Simulated scan of single mutants.
Amino acid sequence: MRRKHMKCLAGITVSTATALGLAAVPSAATGHGDHVVRPGESIQSAVDAAHPGDTIVILPGTYHESVLVTKPGLTLQGMGRRTVITPAAADGKKAANACAAGGNGICVIGAKGRTVDGVTIRALTVSGFSKSGVWASWTDELAVRKVTARSNGTWGIAQERSTRADFRRNTATGNGDAGIFIANSVSEEGGATDTGGTVVLDNSVSGNRIGVTARRVRNLVIDGNTLTGNCSGVFVVGDESKPAAGAMTVSGNRIVKNNKFCPATPRLSAIQGSGIVLTGSERTVVRSNVIRDNVGSTPLSGGILLFKSFVGALNTDNTISENLVRGNQPADLANRDTSGKGNTFVSNTCGTSVPAGMCAG
């Protein structure tokens, strides 16, 4: 069966993938096995049959299931936006796996001391799940690329307790909370997780509550993303725990018209018209972003804001420099955490600031 799948894959690599404008998927020459899933077949069955390092190629079609990955080195390779994963029909039966039981589309799940490493999810759509499109916990070097996560109840693409992820060239739209969500843990309190250099690069994020949330984490890069039509573009969240959140870079993003209104929650005030918000962060660099026309009247509205966290943690030693910040209301730059220490605003092109005098022009 595996040999037959390899032969099928060779034809797909040459013809189907070329026709769809995708890079060729790995062939038998890699030394790993390859599995092809067709409409009406089960992606989970292919994952269960795979060995570490194998590739599962998912042909165009709609697949009604949740997929749980617990093996290292697997690749789930779709064929672009025509490969769609949606929830299975509710029939009163027990959920097929833990991923489905949690309301998620694709899950990569390890355990403390036993991470699932080197998994890649590429070129497919996950849509309509009650929790997350893609959910990862206890992973290392997870890559999510060219994935569309849309209309999921909480997060589009999310990870906790994980390191060295690469989220690149994805589209996250219309999700209930964050389009892309990076956290230390969603189930317990604690100091910020060092992500080991997780990167969030060149994604298109729109129509969510928050575009990108970095919650109680350190050591990551959020760069080159386009964020529009959310309630807030980028939200860095810290608290009083140690180590503190921060030591990250938010650079080169285009953050425009995030003017959707989101009502208050038990943990957060109403949000509208927020570009970049730092709460309880330390040593974060916000540099060379274009932030325009984010307009609202909530306490978190404006272009770039420093705001004391909702448990009282202060911002310290953050640097906001060389950003183009225009047309945001009530202000382009706002330091609303005046008790914070060592925060600097340098060479930002803007029109208005609170307090006044922080704009270079």
Results as ranks from 00 to 15, higher is better:
residue 224 G to K: 02
residue 166 D to S: 12
residue 7 K to W: 09
residue 115 T to P: 10
residue 12 I to C: 13
residue 177 D to Y: 14
residue 72 P to A: 06
residue 135 W to C: 00
residue 123 A to C: 01
residue 126 V to C: 02
residue 84 V to D: 05
residue 57 V to Q: 02
residue 48 D to I: 09
residue 61 G to T: 04
residue 225 N to M: 04
residue 111 A to M: 02
residue 269 S to M: 04
residue 152 N to D: 14
residue 298 T to I: 05
residue 233 G to R: 11
residue 157 I to Y: 01
residue 17 A to E: 07
residue 326 R to G: 03
residue 19 A to G: 07
residue 247 A to C: 03
residue 123 A to W: 01
residue 6 M to A: 15
residue 290 V to K: 13
residue 40 G to K: 04
residue 333 L to H: 09
residue 67 V to W: 06
residue 265 T to E: 13
residue 32 H to G: 05
residue 226 T to A: 12
residue 322 E to R: 13
residue 288 S to R: 14
residue 233 G to L: 10
residue 124 L to G: 07
residue 285 V to D: 14
residue 161 R to L: 02
residue 320 I to H: 08
residue 174 G to D: 06
residue 100 A to S: 15
residue 75 T to D: 05
residue 286 V to D: 11
residue 300 L to C: 02
residue 278 L to N: 10
residue 225 N to T: 06
residue 14 V to G: 03
residue 5 H to F: 12
residue 96 A to V: 10
residue 361 G to N: 11
residue 53 G to R: 11
residue 14 V to I: 14
residue 42 S to R: 05
residue 81 R to S: 13
residue 193 T to P: 00
residue 101 A to Y: 01
residue 356 A to M: 03
residue 189 E to Y: 03
residue 347 S to E: 11
residue 36 V to T: 03
residue 195 T to K: 08
residue 198 T to R: 09
residue 131 K to S: 12
residue 63 Y to S: 09
residue 257 K to I: 06
residue 144 V to T: 02
residue 358 M to P: 03
residue 53 G to I: 11
residue 236 V to W: 08
residue 302 G to E: 08
residue 140 D to Q: 13
residue 285 V to H: 13
residue 94 K to S: 12
residue 255 I to E: 05
residue 21 G to Q: 04
residue 233 G to T: 09
residue 308 K to T: 15
residue 179 G to L: 06
residue 56 I to W: 10
residue 121 I to Q: 04
residue 296 G to K: 03
residue 34 D to R: 13
residue 353 S to V: 11
residue 219 N to P: 08
residue 182 I to S: 11
residue 134 V to Q: 02
residue 142 L to W: 06
residue 187 S to G: 00
residue 222 I to F: 00
residue 13 T to N: 14
residue 181 F to E: 04
residue 138 W to M: 05
residue 241 S to E: 06
residue 82 R to H: 07
residue 348 N to E: 07
residue 6 M to F: 01
residue 218 R to Q: 15
residue 316 T to Q: 12
residue 21 G to S: 09
residue 143 A to F: 00
residue 251 S to E: 13
residue 160 E to P: 00
residue 293 D to L: 14
residue 88 A to Q: 05
residue 247 A to T: 07
residue 348 N to D: 08
residue 277 V to S: 04
residue 250 V to P: 08
residue 351 G to D: 14
residue 282 E to H: 11
residue 194 D to E: 04
residue 122 R to P: 00
residue 183 A to R: 07
residue 34 D to F: 12
residue 178 A to S: 15
residue 152 N to P: 01
residue 132 S to L: 01
residue 34 D to V: 15
residue 251 S to G: 15
residue 175 N to A: 04
residue 183 A to Q: 04
residue 127 S to N: 14
residue 283 R to L: 08
residue 296 G to M: 02
residue 356 A to Y: 05
residue 317 D to Y: 11
residue 283 R to V: 05
residue 185 S to T: 07
residue 283 R to N: 15
residue 230 N to Y: 12
residue 63 Y to I: 09
residue 361 G to D: 10
residue 98 A to M: 03
residue 8 C to L: 09
residue 252 G to N: 15
residue 26 P to K: 14
residue 182 I to Q: 11
residue 147 V to N: 00
residue 80 G to R: 06
residue 291 I to Y: 06
residue 40 G to T: 02
residue 255 I to L: 13
residue 126 V to G: 05
residue 125 T to R: 11
residue 149 A to D: 04
residue 43 I to K: 09
residue 355 P to R: 03
residue 234 V to P: 07
residue 198 T to Y: 06
residue 161 R to M: 03
